[in-house]
Amino acid sequence: MTSRICTSLALAIALTAAATSRAAEPPRVSPATDAAAAGLVEIRTVSPQIQLDIRYAGANNFTGAPVPGYQAPACYLLAPVAQALAKVEADLRSAGYGLRVYDCYRPVRAVQAFMAWVHDPREQSRKAVQYPDLDKPQLLADGYIAERSGHSRGATVDLGLLDCRTGACVVMDMGTDFDFFGVRAHTETPGLTRAQRGNRQQLLQAMARRGFANYPQEWWHYTLRPEPDPGTAYDVPVQ
């Protein structure tokens, strides 16, 4: 009996270890060479009013330069994610608000460029603006930059709120700019004004209604749950 129990316990441990190993495996990189082959949809084809401010296509980002893989300021997402985001935009527009999108699908090569940047101690051009209280190694240790990104799977989007009630849409105060690395960017951080906290909660609730979950360290970061294809990443250029 003892032998059978030990054997069963060993098998359970082995199965658990195997499942953990599979969960930790990186997604495969799709061989697709363009957005259509990857099943990626440009958000404005399903939500024409949505505003884009794709930071990595220009120099206004934490690296201080356009990021490899971004050839145009466009937002691509897997079709179910794009459709869900279009519903969020429609919900908000009906109440006089809207979305401003900062990043959507992110090519694998862009993630690799971020890793090269974080390991380059010489490039500090945006430190005072976007990571004033942290050194570059902390950006990795604290989870602001990662070796792999959900953005590359086409199910994650970075965005903020617009107030369109007067007809001209105005960016709402979320407490920090997009890609501010530090505690103040955490969704539930203390020290926000009532308006800033309310704006974050409004975004959180609007996204949650359509199935998006927030990454608590970044008020702007949302992923559709369940992801349509969590085992696949893409490296087609944004163009």
Rank of each mutant, 00 (worst) to 15 (best):
S149W: 12
S149L: 15
S149T: 15
S149P: 10
G150D: 14
H151V: 08
G154D: 15
G154Y: 14
G154K: 14
G154Q: 15
G154F: 14
A155E: 15
A155L: 08
T156C: 00
T156L: 04
V157D: 02
D158Q: 03
G160Y: 03
G160D: 07
L161Y: 00
L161D: 00
L161G: 00
L162H: 00
L162C: 08
D163C: 01
D163Y: 00
D163P: 00
C164D: 10
C164R: 10
C164N: 09
R165Y: 02
T166S: 06
A168S: 08
C169V: 13
C169Y: 06
V170W: 07
V171S: 06
M172T: 12
D173S: 10
M174K: 09
M174I: 13
M174D: 11
M174V: 12
G175A: 02
G175T: 11
G175M: 04
T176M: 05
T176D: 08
T176G: 03
D177L: 04
F178W: 10
F178Y: 10
D179N: 13
D179L: 02
F180L: 12
F180V: 13
F181C: 12
V183W: 09
V183T: 14
V183C: 06
R184S: 07
R184E: 10
R184M: 05
A185E: 03
A185H: 04
A185Q: 04
